[in-house]
Design a protein around this nucleic acid. Sequence first.
DNA 1: CCGGGTCTTTGACCCAAATCAATGTCGCCT
DNA 2: AGGCGACATTGATTTGGGTCAAAGACCCGG
Lengths: 248, 248
Amino acid sequence: MPNFGSCNVFLRATFGIDPGAEIGRQLGELATQVHVIRGQEVKTDPADTTLVFLASGATKLGALASRERHQIVAFHFGGDIFTVPAVSVHRYMLIGLCESTLTTFPAREFYDRAASNPWIMRALLERSQTALFRCRDKAVNLGQKSAGERVAGFLLAMWERLDASEGPSPMIDLPMSRGDIGESLGLKIETVSRQFTKLREAGIIDTHGRSGVSLLDLPRLAEQAGYYDRNTVPPRPEWVERKPELVP
Amino acid sequence: MPNFGSCNVFLRATFGIDPGAEIGRQLGELATQVHVIRGQEVKTDPADTTLVFLASGATKLGALASRERHQIVAFHFGGDIFTVPAVSVHRYMLIGLCESTLTTFPAREFYDRAASNPWIMRALLERSQTALFRCRDKAVNLGQKSAGERVAGFLLAMWERLDASEGPSPMIDLPMSRGDIGESLGLKIETVSRQFTKLREAGIIDTHGRSGVSLLDLPRLAEQAGYYDRNTVPPRPEWVERKPELVP
DNA sequence: CCGGGTCTTTGACCCAAATCAATGTCGCCT
DNA sequence: AGGCGACATTGATTTGGGTCAAAGACCCGG
């Protein structure tokens, strides 16, 4: 008996599929429900890619570069769909930033069963490309940007992806620690902290406790991020909002 | 009249599609044939993602981090399929490393027309994921690895992707300059050169002219790359070799 | 086969971020 | 409420790779 749960939500909300239909049932059979708490690893198949739907919460996807060196390659938030690679040159681990609920699927089998449904394949392709574009931007940041630029860019990205309070000085609540931010930006925790201090002293941000950040001056923050196109922030992904035209 | 050419090769070889069939004709209409020489940019639509099939040659995909800072996010070789992102926080440019022939498509329209063909969508999804996994490994390298580890890992990756001579000391012919390697690894050209010298003095590689590199000691090279799993090299992507099972 | 421009290598020095080392503070749990 | 452990900040020092500068090697065209 397959384990349903957030799987139904996933199929309906993301792909517009009736979980009761044949395709829904077939995909549902592959689902595994997972619940993790802060810091807990989601065990994934080391031999094959895992497809993950994050129903609620937040996770980080990190790679082991060596025993004491971790690199976070992506953060995910409620509603995100992404894949965890099989082990190759690096071992990847998916870890909860807070209490999270997710559904996992063996990617290859999911694709096999979903192949005939253009709507699903299209949605998966679009999301894969969004992840790729984000990862490329991350590569640019890691390869070419200074510590200050990376931290400013990170705050802008989080402002886009997290629910920020409205108004000219939006406030965000970071679910990850300074250490996580450092591992994501290829910086040490002390460097991240110093950059936060610099931005605070410049009046560009303010901090509240460990996780609260007020973005007091967005234009100046974008300037500090040193993007190619100043005053630009990473665009929200534009999912396919309609069924693709079917070519007979 | 659509411009055919390498497009037919693309459709047949990659997706097993008869270019004369209706779907082949519809996709062929979207194709643009491009021929570039070394150093020449392939103009892509700044407003939308471009899907590219590289028929022959080699290209680099780079991003402008600012006027004088470039980051190469990927190299491509004959047969590769990939996408060039629309302009967002960084401007991406596709440039020939040597004389190259390619076919470009507007991605969104291509996906719309190809959506009903599970074979095509599956192939695109697999390739997108391969690009994503490579990019994630790049992020790990850029964020956590030393200059020596990055250069060693680069040589191993090129050994896998380029046609290397057989034998215990394979030889490869790098189509990119030291400057390109530096821009790909987030290092300056002088640093790349120094690492090549170190590897040569350690007897791990030998160089012949500007582009020839003999990998004299692969195990030691893998060790220098500092991978999580020593003696591992990036695996060749395993494309879908059969039509996916269709769920009715 | 020779000349010249570009690409590469090598050397000396410098700086941004890492490392080492305390000190400070948040927030959870009793 | 109070105390403790993890997390964050700040300061002093080190260092890997960047920067600046110059010499050397490759290779293409004439």
